[in-house]
């Protein structure tokens, strides 16, 4: 390999290191990290609907109170909880793990979030 060849290859590689990511960016859509989907759980007639929901870690769940009375969303062992959710209001959370929850105002109301 002579000197000119070495310089040429080095130059090409050097240029490619800049051009390649640029081309890749233009052609291939960016593969972003999973940012999560939104899911809605409606509270009506004293039930969480759906009562069981399968989501991915990082998804967001929005609870909407469409009932006649105030409710809340409390993790089964009280690890987390919403504030009292008044009629017509909503509350959202980002899911980190599988959880059972209930309404601490009406303990017969129960639901499950399953992470898959």
């Amino acid at each position: 390999m002579n000197k000119i060849q070495v310089i040429l290859i080095t130059t090409i590689l050097f240029a490619a290191s800049f051009i390649f990511p640029y081309i890749q960016k233009r052609i291939v859509p960016p593969t972003k990290a999973y940012t999560g989907r939104n899911h809605t759980i409606e509270i009506k007639q004293m039930t969480f609907s759906p009562a069981n929901i399968v989501v991915k870690k990082g998804d967001r769940i929005i609870f909407v109170n469409h009932d006649m009375v105030t409710h809340d969303i409390t993790e089964a062992k009280k690890a987390w909880s919403s504030a009292p959710l008044l009629i017509g209001k909503s509350w959202s959370m980002t899911v980190t793990q599988t959880a059972a929850y209930y309404c601490s105002i009406h303990p017969v109301m129960k639901g499950k979030i399953i992470v898959k």
């Binding site: 007639q45 009375v69 009406h106 303990p107």
Partner: peptide, 11 residues
């Protein structure tokens, strides 16, 4: 009103 009354009864 009935579902609320039933939830109260269960509670």
């Amino acid at each position: 009103i009935v579902p609320a009354l039933k939830a109260h009864l269960g509670h």
